[in-house]
Each structure stands twice: as structure tokens, then as C-alpha cells.
Design a protein around this nucleic acid. Structure first.
Length: 371
DNA sequence: AACTCGGGGGA
DNA sequence: TCCCCAGAGTT
């Protein structure tokens, strides 16, 4: 990589801020030019934006602030209701940590976010990046805000020849040197807007970039190859069998996941564990695809399968359906778990991850079931 | 240091 | 189809 450019730090930040003044995105949590940020909006948005696109977050953010206009309101909510609003956004530990932190801020800090980085870092769900972002955006404090966008921008600006994993420290030190001495919040957001609008992952729009003249790779065909990519791991496949049981009133059996692991605290259809093809019969006696052993019911196995992609594996879902007339026969099974029948009109109040929504929707479209 | 934890936008 | 997104917590 090239030597750090000397005396270009002011050129960098001035060019970036001038560009931002004209091209800044209008976002529901972002204060208009010259106005003070709402720290609750900044905090809530930063949690939602962790590994999540702005476009995806906007409707969730609007739903949340309409339902819980301030942090004290959020602190008083039930976790399950927060999860039902969060459903579909993913990384559900964020919702739990959001609630925990809201309660701490409401009860111990009189409803005000701490204004120092270390106190913010001590709160559940707030780490290195998010604490820095809140310091800069909510409190306009000088703060090195480095996310995936910023890493991409600097990896191109300095033609960093190593993958992010190996160059993280270098890039963070570089970013630190570029920080201006004023407009800290605007600068942090300008860098991210640049990464989102101009210095985008696949086909960077170098011709429109305010930093084109001083960027190491700006305008070249090699710009898009930065940051250097690592070879990807192959995604494994797992198999699951989900049970859709209606009682005589048409209510559907759901359970609530335990508070750790995948889809923690979310409402799901009962299923066996999810196993690799070769292990599913050995590991779960329930998983006999022709005659699954679950709640002692006779199940109809649907021909239609359905795939769902998680970060680390692909889940192949089979579906089993049944109707029960006398659910009292299940009382012993149901009392030992979080199983419960839910009326169809109340299903929309559940905290359903996208996987389960997808399954319910497929069943509905199958028109086998009386929705 | 490596792994876990969702879901979807966009090309 | 594949990449990657305003990352944090756990092991």
C-alpha cells in the first residue's frame, strides 16, 4: 500500500463535508441541517442498522417511534411485544439488548443516554462502533466511527492490499487521522453516505466522487476489487420438519423459543431439531418423514418443501399438518413446554421470524388449510 | 481469534 | 445466484 498522504486530511474532510451538504440523505432519525439530534432516535436507529440496510430499517424505525416515542416508553414495554415489532429484522438478540438498555437508561440514568463512550459501551448491545456513532451523531463529539462502509472507502482511498480482517487496525488508525476538528456528527454521516451512495461495493461511482482527485484507485477499473475479498466458505444444508396443528376452533399450535440461540425468544411452529441429511434419523426419532412421532398425532406430510437461507446454513423445511378435536388429550404434552394454541386472528400479534411467516404463507397459498 | 447470530436489497 | 449490509456477544 502507498504511504499515507501528507497534508491531505483537510482536503479530504472539506471535500467530503461540502459534498454532504448537497447530497446528504434524508433519514427519519437524522436531524435537519443545523438542528440537534434526538439521541433516542440516533440510538434506536444505530441498533437497527447493525448489519442491516438503511432501506430495510426505515419502516421498522417508523413503527417503533410511533409505538414508543421515547426511551421511557420503550423501557415499560414487554419484551414479547418488542419482539413482535422487531420480527423480520433479524439478529433478535438486538431486540432483547435494546429493551435491557432502555430499562437501564430509564431507571438509572433518568431517561438520558450517557454522553461518554465508556458508559455507552457498558450498555447491552452497544459496542465499539455503536458507541462511537452515538458520540458523533447524537452529541457531536469527535469520534472515530468505523463501520463496513468506512472500511471500504479507506481501503480504496489507500489501495489497501490486505483483506479487512488483517487491515482493520491500519484502517482505523488512518480514519483517526482524517477526523476534522468540527462538524463531527456531519462528518461521520458524510463518510457513511459516501460509502452508501458513491463508494458502493460493486460498481463504485467514481466520476461523482468528491474524493476522486486524491483517491489511490479512484476512476480505475480496479477500484471495485477493494477491499480484498477472502474466499468464502461453502454453506451447509440442514433439514427440518415443522408441525402445523389446528384444534377444532381453528387455533394453531405455536411455541416460544428459549432465550438463547437462533431465533431466541421468537414464536415458531413446533419442529424437530434441524439436522444434516445423514444425521436426521439418528438424532431425532421424531424425524421419520413418513410417520413423524410428535404429540402422538397422525400427520399428513406435504409434498411441497421450502428453503430458507440463514447466514451459516440453508434450511430445507418439510411440513406436517394435522387437526385435533380434543386438545385435552395433549394436556400433558402441552403443559411441559411453551406450546400454546393461538387463534388465527391473533397470529399477527406473535413475534414470528421470517422463516415462520414464509411457512405460514406457503400453507395459506396451498389452500389446503382454512385460513 | 473464531464462531454465532437473520434477513433481504440489489446487481 | 452471490455479496454484503451504520456489528455485538460468546467461547
Amino acid at each position: 500500500m502507498t504511504q499515507v498522504k501528507k497534508n491531505n486530511y483537510n482536503t479530504f474532510s472539506n471535500s467530503l463535508l461540502s459534498w454532504y451538504d448537497i447530497n446528504r440523505r434524508i433519514l427519519p432519525w437524522r436531524a435537519p441541517p443545523g438542528e440537534i439530534s434526538n439521541p433516542y432516535f440516533v440510538y434506536l436507529s444505530e441498533i437497527m442498522l447493525q448489519q442491516t440496510l438503511v432501506k430495510t430499517v426505515i419502516p421498522y424505525f417508523l413503527k417503533f417511534v410511533r409505538k414508543w416515542p421515547d426511551i421511557n416508553a420503550l423501557a415499560k414495554a414487554e419484551l414479547h411485544e418488542i419482539n413482535s415489532y422487531w420480527a423480520g429484522l433479524g439478529y433478535y438478540s438486538r431486540a432483547k439488548n435494546l429493551h435491557e438498555t432502555a430499562k437501564i437508561i430509564s431507571n438509572k440514568f433518568d431517561g438520558f443516554l450517557p454522553t461518554d463512550k465508556n458508559s455507552l459501551m457498558a450498555l447491552p448491545g452497544i459496542g465499539e462502533y455503536t458507541s462511537s456513532a452515538i458520540m458523533a451523531i447524537a452529541f457531536d463529539r469527535k469520534s472515530n466511527v468505523v463501520d463496513g462502509n468506512v472500511e471500504r472507502v479507506f481501503s480504496r482511498f489507500y489501495a489497501v492490499e490486505k483483506p479487512i480482517k488483517e487491515s482493520k487496525i491500519f484502517i482505523k488508525n488512518i480514519a483517526e487521522k482524517h477526523l476534522p476538528d468540527n462538524r463531527h456528527g456531519d462528518y461521520a454521516q458524510a463518510l457513511m453516505d459516501l460509502g452508501s451512495l458513491i463508494c458502493i461495493p460493486k460498481s463504485p461511482r467514481c466520476k461523482m466522487c468528491p474524493l476522486l482527485a486524491i483517491c489511490d484507485v479512484g476512476g480505475t477499473t480496479s477500484a471495485k476489487q477493494y477491499p480484498i475479498k477472502l474466499p468464502k466458505k461453502e454453506k451447509e444444508e440442514r433439514y427440518g420438519l415443522f408441525f402445523y396443528l389446528q384444534n377444532k376452533d381453528g387455533a394453531v399450535l405455536f411455541e416460544t423459543n428459549k432465550s438463547s440461540g437462533l431465533l431466541a425468544n421468537m414464536d415458531v411452529l413446533p419442529s424437530i431439531g434441524w439436522y444434516e441429511e445423514s444425521n436426521r434419523f439418528k438424532k431425532s426419532p421424531k424425524f421419520n418423514k413418513k410417520k413423524p412421532n410428535f404429540l402422538g398425532m397422525k400427520w399428513k406430510i406435504l409434498d411441497q418443501n421450502l428453503n430458507h437461507i440463514f447466514t451459516h446454513f440453508k434450511l430445507n423445511c418439510s411440513l406436517a399438518i394435522a387437526t385435533i378435536n380434543d386438545e385435552n388429550a395433549l394436556v400433558n404434552d402441552l403443559s411441559k413446554s411453551s406450546y400454546r394454541f393461538v387463534q388465527k386472528t391473533n397470529i399477527n400479534e406473535l413475534a414470528l421470524p421470517s422463516l415462520i411467516k414464509k411457512i405460514l404463507n406457503a400453507l395459506k397459498n396451498n389452500e389446503i388449510l382454512d385460513f
